[in-house]
Amino acid sequence: MTDRRTIGVFASENDIMNAIRVVRARGYDIEDVYTPYAIHGLERALGMKRSRLPWITLILGLTGAGLKVWFEYWTTAVNWPVNVGGKPWDSLPAFVPVTFEVMVLLAGVSTVLVFLGVAQLYPGRKPKRFYPGVTDDRFVLVLNETDASFDLEETRELLSSLNAVDVDERIGEEGR
């Protein structure tokens, strides 16, 4: 991967969705797409694989539930047996609500944290700002200039013909 990228700036959702379809068909390498709001169906248009995040949620949820059942069993039946209404010490139905809550808590909170980590949304990270208008009303398509055969002029013409309002080249990780 080189350090050079071509960006195409679009004025509407429909334009960029169409452009994504065309440049993908032409074999361009799309690094990323920046939009001012979430566009439904964008991840499918980009051909992104399904996130593996649900597996993290599942594993952490099961871990939370398992640990909690063990902890409740240990506290009420092993370490300090408590007689509640003459019920057996290891009365599982009584454990269910707290187990459920801890499962949701651990799965929910850690899913958010893992997501923030994977999406690199943490303090101290240098933001990629390819085009300031993306925080307002512009849709930005970032293409990797993969190899020597990448023709900037040809790409510029292609993007312009797809209603790009601006086409530019950016050098460097921070997109300056």
Binding site: G85, K87, P93, A94, V96, P97
Partner: peptide
């Protein structure tokens, strides 16, 4: 279902 069951089981 469980909400109904648990309260009845608990108070017995």
């Amino acid at each position: 279902w469980f909400s109904q069951y648990m309260l009845i089981w608990y108070s017995n």
